[in-house]
Design a protein around this nucleic acid. Sequence first.
RNA 1: GUGGAUGUAGCUCAGUUGGAUAGAGCACCAGGUUGUGGCCCUGGUGGUCGGGGGUUCGAGUCCCCUCAUCCACCCCA
Length: 415
Amino acid sequence: MKYKALYGTHDLLPEDSFKWQNLEEKVRKTISLYNYKEIRTPIFEETDLFARSIGQDTDIVQKEMYTFLDQGKRSLTLRPEGTAGVVRAYLEHSLGEKSPLVKLFYFGPMFRQERPQKGRLRQFHQFGVEAIGSLEPSLDAEVIDLSVKICYALGITDFKLHLNSIGCPVCRPIHRDKFLNFMKDKVGELCEDCKTRFLRNPLRMFDCKKEGCIEQLKDAPVMIDFLCEECKNHYILVKQYLDALKIDYFEDKTLVRGLDYYTKTAFELKSKLLGTQDTLCGGGRYDLLVEELGGKNTPAIGFAAGIERFVLVLKMEEKLDLEEKNLDLFIATLGDEARTLAMKLIKDLREKNIICETDYLNRSLKAQMKEANRQKAKKVLIIGEDEIKKGKAILKDMDSGEQKEIELEKIRGAF
RNA sequence: GUGGAUGUAGCUCAGUUGGAUAGAGCACCAGGUUGUGGCCCUGGUGGUCGGGGGUUCGAGUCCCCUCAUCCACCCCA
């Protein structure tokens, strides 16, 4: 075979596409309950937008973006995540001038050039929400509540909410100094990866699974103990709201975010069923991003969720909707006259929203019946020469096997 | 970018210490029913054994290279 889907990309075939549709429908419905409105932004943007918002030093910008030059020699990039484009659109259309709090959601493909593995693809799909314009902890609670609610709406039960606060530009440097100071004598004991992390992204050391590193990090200062008054109070209030909403959470002092724009509240929904790429949904505050992209100082919070990962978990929990819309009627024909009649009937019935199908391969009646069965048609209408003469046709119920003659003009009434 | 594993029919997989026209189940097509599906029976279509090179009288099987996929590292949805 000459052409194949690129490494890390997948075709969504008919046998699965309806499952995605069902999933999307439920997600949309739930998000709408929380009064978020859909926004659709382009899947490519100026490269600089992503570099600016995600952060020059992140892995995404450093090595994972699909970047190309267009005919005009401008550097463009397939979006690696959704927030940057949404905030760009928010600013471009002055949505903040029309309403102080803007609640948006999106669905769509994202692109990152990573090595694929379970739960990780190069073109993958996310949905996410962004609430832009408020610093209220109650808004954090709403966003978190929504993410949890979506899981329940889909029937997912095996997941855990991890919660943390990663501070702000006031308190983060203080912790960073303390942390580096604490670790600097221990660097020699760390694994090679952690030595690199120490220089590039020290907090990532908390993710290390090696026992030696975990031991060294045991008493390391964590961000949560260094929060400034504002961040500390914010975090306390978020927890109070979550308690009030009876949402269980696990305070994960080591939870870090990969994108530079995050501040204060950070959360993830994780599922053990996923293997090592266990994050279903990740989010948090990004109070600095809007200003960073040229807007006014505007606090915001959001999350993004991986649709493929949801599908994986749903498959494992066997909660995927298997209901396919199947055929209401298959019309089997014998002869040219019958086929013409069938064509007219079908056009008519489709007008009435009846899903119907007929044979386009000149097959035997037996083969047509097999086809009807394969497509799970509820009923089959058989039109042959005898039936045309009599002005009647045979209507067969495929479940019971019963069949009866029916006048051609009365067929519409049978549904 | 690094490591490990796996590539045989549309799908899931057998294939012995290297041995003759490469198999099974499912799916597909046809017949058993001159105009009736599912179950059953019979038959059929379908494979450059991922690709290339090598060893050998002989390679799906052994060796080398390459490509692809999966899993893991890194990192993230």
